[in-house]
Computed example of a mutant assay.
Amino acid sequence: MLNLDEYFKTTFEDKLLFKMLEREEDQLTPATRLLEKRRELAEVEQALATQKEEFQMKMESLQQRRAELERKELQLKESLEKFDKFLKENDLKKNRAIKKANDERDMKKAKDKEIEILQVESENLNKECKQMKNKQDAYMIFNSFMLRILNDTEEFNEIRDIISRYDTLISTYKDLVEAEQRNQDMIEKIKQNTLRETEEKHNEILGYNNLLSNLQSEVEYYESKALFWESKWNHIKNTASKEALKSGQIKMATRNLYNVIKTYQEQIITEEVTTLQQLNYVRIFGEDLTTITQTIYNEFCQDEVN
């Protein structure tokens, strides 16, 4: 409220000051100017009071509207809370109803399944009962047959004796079958052993035959090698004979040449020397003879030149 008073006061003071400035230009008398100012001031105060009263009325109206809005807002909030509570309760009831319906549906399915199982079991029991009845009817033939045997023979006193004899015969038959099976197994085992031993002997004979064939091949190979080396030996002997003959001829020629040189040198052979020594002696003589001949030839050529 104080701020509004200051606002209106400032506004009217500005207007009053503006008018006073305008009147000063008219050069009014001070008394007239004072009265005019008082009149204007009264008008301004009257207008200010009127506006203040209007503003106060507007403020009261606004406060009433605000209070009404707050009251309505509170009512709306309460209504919303009640409606939300109603929705939650309704959802809870709905969920309980759905759960109950689902449970009842599951229970119904389980009961239906149980009924189906019981019906199947009942049908199976009826079938089994019928089968047992059929077996009973079928076995009545054997009962009549055994009663007839008891009446026709004095060996058995009761049906139990016949069954006991039957069990004994069946047991004996099984023993005989088992013994026969054991004998057959033994015979089969002997056959298998004989066949295996025969096969082993056959394989052993084949092995010896292969070994004999390999040895025969080796004998033939070594015989061919012996013939080859025998021909080689004959060739070597023939070659050795020829070489021995040639060696003898060389030795004889060397001996003759050695004797000729010794005779030429008028030397007497006093000791036996080897063929190699003879050849060495002949070589030295030949070299000396070549040197002498070359010297004589050179001197002859020199004399011819002179």
Rank of each mutant, 00 (worst) to 15 (best):
R165N: 05
K111W: 10
N126G: 03
L147G: 10
D106Q: 12
I149N: 02
H202T: 12
K99G: 01
S144G: 06
D167T: 05
S122K: 14
K111Y: 07
L176A: 10
N126W: 02
N209G: 02
E104W: 05
Q119T: 13
N209C: 08
V177Q: 14
L125W: 07
Y166P: 00
T168N: 04
K113G: 02
L211A: 15
A97N: 07
E155R: 09
D112Q: 15
R160A: 05
Q119M: 12
R148S: 09
K109E: 12
K100H: 08
Q119S: 12
E123Y: 06
N126V: 04
K133I: 01
K133S: 11
N151P: 00
A97K: 12
E104C: 07
A97F: 14
M132K: 15
L147I: 04
D175H: 09
I170Q: 13
K113W: 02
K130E: 12
A110F: 03
I205H: 08
Q192A: 12
Q131N: 11
Q131C: 03
Q131A: 07
D185I: 04
T198F: 08
D103G: 02
R105H: 08
L169A: 03
K111N: 04
Q119Y: 02
N209R: 11
E197N: 12
E200D: 11
A138V: 03
N183M: 12
I205K: 10
T168L: 10
L212Y: 13
N209P: 00
K133F: 03
Q192M: 10
N209D: 11
G207S: 12
E204D: 09
Y166H: 06
L206T: 05
E128P: 00
K100R: 15
Y208T: 10
V177L: 14
N102I: 11
E200I: 09
E204M: 06
E199R: 15
E121K: 15
L150Q: 04
N210M: 08
N102S: 05
T153G: 00
I98Y: 04
S122H: 10
A110D: 02
I190D: 03
N126F: 03
R196I: 01
R182L: 09
D161C: 01
N157R: 09
N193E: 14
S164R: 05
E197T: 15
D106V: 11
